[in-house]
Structures are given as structure tokens and as C-alpha cells.
Nucleic acid binder design. Structure first.
Length: 812
DNA sequence: AGCACGCCGACT
DNA sequence: GTCGGCGTGCTC
């Protein structure tokens, strides 16, 4: 029996199946999806069994048997296995990379080596030089650990000993199973035997006697203790228990226990809420699709506050009643306790939550609950799309326009695409929900590829907030040089009086803080990347945003020796200072990367604000979503156009989405909301249409721009990134690739480039790119694969790297 | 990726 | 004369 294995070596040359002989003792257990450890050349690696075959095409004398099974049950289902192939083909990734991203981080293999003194050597024969390395045993269990705090000299000595075969190296593959384990102590003998044991225990072993007496006096109560509990109850030390174990009176075994990240929290069960007519109209076709088991993709466009979540909840409820399962994707940033609570309250312990604030181990446990069928709803960020359910009945993607659904590293998959693929397999509906759908999705809905569902009104007829656009040029002209417009100041003071709350949103992109010489205009740059250094106030340093390089702030300009080198840019700290100047008494809660770095501080700050401990919540992107407090009646956007001028064709779309999202934070309940948007380009449609809450108008205008520029959704894009330490190599390779693509691809396809990337150098690597625009291109995948193959040897031998991004979201 | 095999310069 | 540099090629 032969196992076809994808080995955990993510390079071109090994990105295919390798055949291994299945030893007879594994034949019963082995199935596709199981992980195995296999000999691979001189070392041992982990791999995924993709298929089982009777025999192999490969030279049978060269086929090695696989070493061991890592799993008894496959962590990946047949469906996910098939999906992995589809994802790798559609993202041009290595197969293992995809397989590994389908598993929780805790299940990824770790490689280490064990060192041991060669068995044939007698004690006297061990060279003195290495004796201190092996003080107790003849083994060093982990090379990794040992070499970490060994001196360079020690390492050299060890290497020599390895070479002389005095020390033997055994490669190890560990699945860092971060399963939380509990030591369980079991009594192995009868009461009588315990009494006998006391007699035979030397009287100086007081502790052992004490423990034995404890066991006797509690014999009827329990025969099994967790080690920690036992140590406490019997008041003995770990060693004492070990002594009894050596005498075979007790056994100690490790037992995996599941953590519950929400342990101790109680959730009040919630009942389905009565639906508004619009909600019901949206829900009905979804329910039909669930009952008829016909896969369909719905695009649910519902304005902020229209009650999309309730529609999701009731659709899921129906799915669960049919004995099926549901995946709900939420952007990481809005995976807040508020959101999780709503699902927990409705579905209780049947919900698993996967998000980045959980520890590796906690994520693993949540994942296991899904795999073992203990839950039937998974709520999580992007990677939760790979939740190993086997009876999927629905997939919901909330805020479907969010760019975080596209993974920015290999495999560069988009969760929406994967969702639809899984939906097809399970004949299950997909719901894409958003107040501001991506142009791609809305265009597909208009074409009838997706089914469009619309909710134009807020629940309970709450009015949409009043949005005023403030022209900051006008403010300047009338003599206001501060960063707050007159209306905003008036708005804030008004809220202070009424004891209502304000949210101030500063979009920091394009506004990074930097240092500039006022005399000659010199801006300190990173030595390794072509980018300005960012000013960090906390440790008074200049840091590179891309490579982490850090230097001190110069007191005089290195170019012109002038001393008027100053800090520029607008950060939340600056806004806070300015705001305090206007309102000395105001209580500000600031949320940005600096104040939310510590785990849980994000939630803490939000809770404080919710409890009314602040008048103003000031923050960046992270406050745009999920925030739902009844007392917020004013939202101020300080610089609405800061992202509008980024070199990205989606900048208009992002601006509209973000502004709409932020505006949606105001007046969600009884009190009416007001939004003040400050901008230097008040006439831009991305800003104007926010005022009128008119998605359709924005959509039409933006579509026009896309059509004109030949951008999605009219064309598909591929970006090929080429980087190397040698500039000449990058340029020539990118040029050759561009020409090759121009030659190979059809006439209706456009190939642009080569051009230097927006950041032409990062970490001393030069970066170039070329871009493909196409509508239909059957040869695309093959041609791109050919490019990878052509440069295969060059990428392994030199520093050259080629990355391909299908349907990119980041144009940088 | 690792790791071994294999062919040319500075050292015991 | 050997040790060791890293170029080349393979892993079932």
C-alpha cells in the first residue's frame, strides 16, 4: 500500500506528491487527510497524506516506508483536501502552505534534533571536551534549546563531536500539540497494599508515609486526582508522588483537557426578535435556499443599523434546526465581545469562536470542538472559512467589502471565493452582508450572479444621521487655522452640555508622523528601505515602519547643519493635545496602536466609554466598526480625504466605505445622530454621497471610473512582485517576465510594466512589479506557472524572489 | 528548505 | 599536503 504525501517543504522543487510505503500496522488507520512523519533525504519531515494507492509509478526499490502517523483521525476532511488543491491552483501557492493554513497554528510541525552520546562508547571513552555538555544523561533532548544558550565555542566543539560520530544526531518532528494537559494520578493498588506499603517505607520518608495515609483515609472518596489538587490536599511535594509512582503504587498520566475561553461568563439566552418587514423580505429567500438545499450567493445590502445580524441569526437558527452547521466570518477588528455575545446568547455552547486574541492553545481547542462535532456554529475572522465542518448549511460573511478577507501572504486567498466554493460543495447558501458592498460583489448582484437583497431602513425607524460636509479650505480662508472646524467645535460643546458622547475619527493613513528640516526640506530616510522614518514620541526615536530599523532624532540637520529640524504630521496624540486646548475639562479616551497594544485593552477602553467614563472617543480605523452605544450622538471625521489620494484604484471605494461605516456609529438608538466630515475635497463623489447615504449613486460613479481605467470589476488583475538584493537582476527579470507574458497571453489581455514598486526598496531588497489586466484568459494559470518554473533555479540560488497575487487588494 | 557531494584557496 | 569555502543537485 502506497501513501501519496505532500511534504512540509515549501519550495517549488518539492511542491508535488511523494510516494511512501505504508507499513502493515498502519494500513487500517491511514486515510487521506492524516498527517505523517516521513524520511525525506537525510532528514525527517511532516507531510499530509493526499491519497492512498495500490502501487506506485516510482522505482519501487527507492520507496521508503513512512515513519509514523501523527493523527489517528484525519484533521482535514476529504472536502477540505479537495478544496486545498483548488486554493493552491487559484492562488499559485505551494500545496503544503495551503494545507497548513487550514489547520490551527498549534498543529503545525516543529523540527528539532536530539543529541546523544554514541551507544558504542563506554563511559571512559567519552572525550573530556564534551563531557560537560552531558552532565546527567547521555542525551540532549532539544538541540534548539541547547544551542540557544550555548557559546559559539561550545557549539563548535559539539559540531566536531558530531562529525567524529561521538555524538549522534536524531532528527525530530514535533507537532507542538499545545493541548492543555493535566497530570492525573491514579491509585493502582488496594487499601491493604497501601497499608503494607507504609510498613515497608523507611521511617525517615515522612512525606511518603503522609501521602500513603492520605490515600488510605480518602480511599472510598476518590481513586483519581489531578496532580495539582492532590499536592494541595495531601500537602506533599511533586517528588513524593513520583516516589510512589516508582514503586508502582500510583500511576501518573497526562490527559488532554479542553479550555473554554469564555469559561465563567454566563450568557443570557436570547430569543429571535420580531423582524421588520424589510428584514423578513430579505430572510425569506435565504430560508427557501436552506430548505431546498440549492447553493446560492446572496448579497444583503443593508444600511448601518438595519438589523443584518438578526437576519443572520434567524437564518442560522433554521440551519441548525435542519441538523446542519454554520460559519460566520467577521472582520478581525469587529470581532468584539459585543458581536460574540450576540451569537453566544442565541446559540449558547454550540458556538466556537476563532479569533486572534485567543492563545494558540485556545484556538486549537475551539478548532477541535468543530472537528469533533461538539459545536455547530463557528464565528471567526478570515481563516475560520476553513472550519472543518462536514454538514455545512450556510456561510455568512459580514462586512463583505472588508479587505481583511483577502490574505496578504501566501496563500493569498480571498475568503469570499473560498466560501462560495464550499457553498457549492454543500449546496448551501452564502450570505454576503454589508452596508457598502464591494464593487465586485454589487456588480455581480446586478448581473444576477448573486441574488440581491436590500434593507434601506434602520430598525425601529431610527433616522439616518444628519451628515454635514465641512470644507476645510473655507475654514482656513475665514481664519480658522486649527484642526477643528467651527461646526465640529460647536457640536462637541453642545454634546458636553447635553452629557452625550462624541466619537472623533482620525484616519492616520497618509498622515504618518515624520521629521523635516524647515530650512532645506531634508527628511530622514531608512538606510535599508526607501521610505521616510516615522517619529515615535514614546521613546524619542525615528523608526522604519517596514524593517524596524531605529535611530535617534538628529538635533541638527545632517544636510544643511540647521537646527530647525521639526516634527510634522498629525497623530491622535496631537489631536488630543489640541482638543484639550479648546476644552480643558474634556475627558478623552484615546484608542490607537499605542493605547491598545496590550491584550484586552481594546475591550477595556470601549467598555469605559460605554460606561460613560469619557466624553470623546478618539481613535483610528479600529473605532470604525461594531461600536454601538446609545449615547453617541456626534461623529467627527477629522480628515476625510486622507486616504483618497493614495495610489490605489480602490481609494475612492475605501473612503466611501469608511466614512459610511463611521457615520453609522452615530444615533443608532433613540437620540438622533449627527456627523461632521471635515475635508479638503468636499466635491468628491466618495465624500458627497456619504452625505446623502446614497450607495447606488456612489456605485454608478465609481463604476464609471473603473470602466474608464480598466479596473475591477471590469477586468481581473494579477500583480507580479519581483524582488532581489541586486537592482540589475530585478530589473532584467521583471522585464523578461513582462515580455514573456505579453507574448504568451491573448491580445485582449494587457500587461503593464515593469515598474518600480511604490516602496522601491525594503530591507535592502529592490522591488519591481508588473501587472496583468484580463477579462478571459484560459492560459493564465499555466503561463504564470511557467514563469515560476523558468526562474526556479534563479530563485533558489540567488536572493531573487517572485510573488504572484491574483486579484490583489494591496497595490503597493 | 536542508543537506550531501564535489571541486579550488589558505593553513597545520 | 589537508581543512573548508559555498556552487549544484536531490529528496519517494
Amino acid at each position: 500500500m502506497i501513501a501519496k504525501v505532500i511534504v512540509d517543504v515549501a519550495v517549488n522543487q518539492t511542491d508535488r506528491m511523494f510516494d511512501y510505503l505504508v507499513p502493515p500496522e498502519f494500513e487500517q488507520t491511514i486515510v487521506p487527510g492524516i498527517r505523517v512523519n516521513v524520511p525525506f533525504g537525510p532528514r525527517k519531515v511532516q507531510g499530509f497524506v493526499i491519497a492512498i494507492a495500490e502501487d506506485s509509478e516510482y522505482d519501487s526499490s527507492k520507496i521508503k516506508p513512512l515513519a509514523e502517523l501523527v493523527d489517528l483521525k484525519p484533521p482535514l476532511t476529504e472536502e477540505l483536501l479537495a478544496l486545498s488543491t483548488w486554493v493552491k491552483d487559484n492562488t499559485l501557492s505551494f500545496h503544503v502552505t495551503v494545507l497548513k493554513t487550514m489547520l490551527p497554528a498549534a498543529m503545525r510541525a516543529k523540527y528539532d534534533k536530539r543529541l546523544s552520546i554514541h551507544e558504542s562508547l563506554d563511559e571512559g571513552e567519552v572525550p573530556e571536551s564534551i563531557q560537560p555538555f552531558f552532565p546527567e544523561t547521555n542525551e540532549i533532548e532539544s538541540w534548539e534549546k541547547w544551542s540557544k544558550d550555548a557559546s559559539e565555542l561550545d557549539k563548535k566543539v559539539m559540531m566536531t563531536a558530531i562529525k567524529e560520530e561521538v555524538v549522534l544526531v536524531t532528527p525530530l518532528v514535533k507537532t507542538s500539540d499545545s493541548v492543555k494537559k493535566q497530570q492525573i494520578v491514579n491509585l493502582m493498588v488496594s487499601k491493604k497494599d497501601l497499608e503494607k506499603a507504609i510498613e515497608s517505607t523507611p521511617s525517615r520518608a515522612i512525606k511518603q508515609v503522609k501521602l500513603l495515609e492520605f490515600f488510605i483515609s480518602h480511599f472510598e472518596d476518590e481513586s483519581e486526582y489531578t496532580l495539582t489538587a492532590l499536592l494541595e490536599k495531601a500537602d506533599v511535594s511533586r517528588d513524593t508522588v513520583q516516589s510512589l509512582r516508582k514503586k508502582n503504587l500510583v500511576s501518573i498520566e497526562e490527559k488532554a483537557i479542553a479550555r473554554d475561553p469564555y469559561e465563567g461568563r454566563t450568557f443570557v439566552k436570547s430569543e429571535p426578535l420580531p423582524l421588520m418587514e424589510e428584514q423578513q423580505t430579505a430572510l425569506d429567500p435565504i430560508l427557501d435556499s436552506i430548505h431546498q438545499e440549492n447553493h446560492q450567493t446572496f448579497l444583503l445590502r443593508g444600511v448601518t443599523g438595519s438589523g443584518k445580524t438578526e437576519v443572520y441569526l434567524q437564518a442560522i437558527d433554521q440551519v441548525l434546526k435542519k441538523g446542519k452547521e454554520a460559519i460566520v466570518l467577521v472582520p478581525e477588528i469587529s470581532l468584539t465581545p459585543q458581536m460574540v455575545t450576540r451569537f453566544k446568547e442565541r446559540f449558547g455552547s454550540r458556538v466556537a469562536v476563532l479569533h486572534s486574541a485567543l492563545s494558540k492553545g485556545e484556538k486549537y481547542d475551539e478548532w477541535q470542538k468543530i472537528r469533533e462535532g461538539k459545536v455547530d456554529v463557528a464565528v471567526g475572522a478570515r481563516s475560520a472559512i476553513f472550519a472543518p465542518f462536514e454538514k455545512l448549511g450556510i456561510i455568512i460573511i459580514d462586512e463583505e467589502h472588508e479587505t481583511s478577507y483577502k490574505q496578504e501572504e501566501s496563500p493569498r486567498y480571498h475568503a469570499r471565493q473560498v466560501a462560495i466554493k464550499r457553498g457549492e460543495y454543500y449546496k448551501a447558501p452564502i450570505i454576503l452582508g454589508s452596508a457598502t458592498p464591494s464593487l465586485e460583489s454589487y456588480a455581480r448582484a446586478k448581473k444576477g450572479v448573486y441574488t440581491l437583497l436590500t434593507m434601506e431602513n434602520r430598525v425601529n425607524h431610527v433616522k439616518m444621521p444628519e451628515v454635514s460636509i465641512i470644507d476645510m479650505r473655507e475654514e482656513l480662508r475665514s481664519g480658522n487655522r486649527s484642526m477643528f472646524s467651527e461646526s465640529l467645535v460647536k457640536g462637541i460643546s453642545d454634546r458636553l452640555e447635553k452629557r452625550e458622547q462624541t466619537v472623533l475619527f482620525l484616519n492616520r493613513r497618509g498622515y504618518s508622523s515624520f521629521i523635516m528640516c524647515r530650512d532645506c526640506g531634508y527628511v530622514p530616510q531608512c538606510d535599508h528601505c526607501d521610505i521616510s522614518l516615522t517619529y515615535h514620541r514614546t521613546n524619542q526615536s525615528l523608526q522604519c515602519h517596514y524593517c524596524g530599523h531605529s535611530e535617534t532624532i538628529p538635533s541638527i540637520c545632517p544636510e544643511c547643519q540647521s537646527d530647525s529640524i521639526r516634527f510634522f504630521g498629525t497623530g491622535t496624540q496631537k489631536v488630543e493635545e489640541e482638543l484639550l486646548k479648546v476644552f480643558p475639562e474634556i475627558r478623552i479616551i484615546r484608542m490607537d496602536v499605542d493605547t491598545t497594544r496590550r491584550k484586552g485593552s481594546h475591550e477595556k477602553l470601549l467598555r469605559q466609554f460605554g460606561e460613560g467614563k469619557g466624553d470623546v472617543l478618539l481613535g483610528t480605523q479600529m473605532i470604525a466598526k461594531g461600536l454601538d452605544f446609545p449615547n453617541i450622538t456626534l461623529v467627527g471625521v477629522l480628515a476625510a480625504d486622507s486616504m483618497l489620494h493614495l495610489p490605489d484604484f480602490r481609494s475612492g471605494e475605501r473612503t466611501f466605505q469608511l466614512l459610511t461605516q463611521v457615520s453609522g456609529r452615530a444615533g443608532r438608538h433613540l437620540k438622533p445622530g449627527e456627523v461632521v466630515v471635515q475635508t479638503y475635497t468636499p466635491d468628491h463623489y466618495s465624500i458627497e454621497d456619504v452625505k446623502s447615504h446614497n450607495y447606488l449613486s456612489f456605485f454608478e460613479k465609481e463604476m464609471g471610473i473603473r470602466k474608464q481605467g480598466g479596473y475591477p470589476p471590469y477586468y481581473f488583475l494579477v500583480i507580479i512582485h519581483v524582488s532581489s538584493e541586486q537592482l540589475d537582476q530585478v530589473v532584467s527579470v521583471t522585464e523578461k517576465i513582462t515580455h514573456f507574458l505579453q507574448r504568451e497571453l491573448s491580445d485582449q489581455t494587457f500587461v503593464y510594466g515593469p515598474v518600480a514598486s511604490t516602496i522601491p526598496r525594503i530591507k535592502d531588497r529592490y522591488r519591481y512589479q508588473c501587472m496583468i489586466k484580463y477579462k478571459v484568459e484560459p492560459k493564465l494559470t499555466n503561463t504564470l506557472q511557467e514563469v515560476i518554473k523558468t526562474y526556479q533555479s534563479e530563485t533558489t540560488r540567488s536572493s531573487l524572489a517572485i510573488h504572484m497575487d491574483m486579484n490583489p487588494y494591496m497595490m503597493l
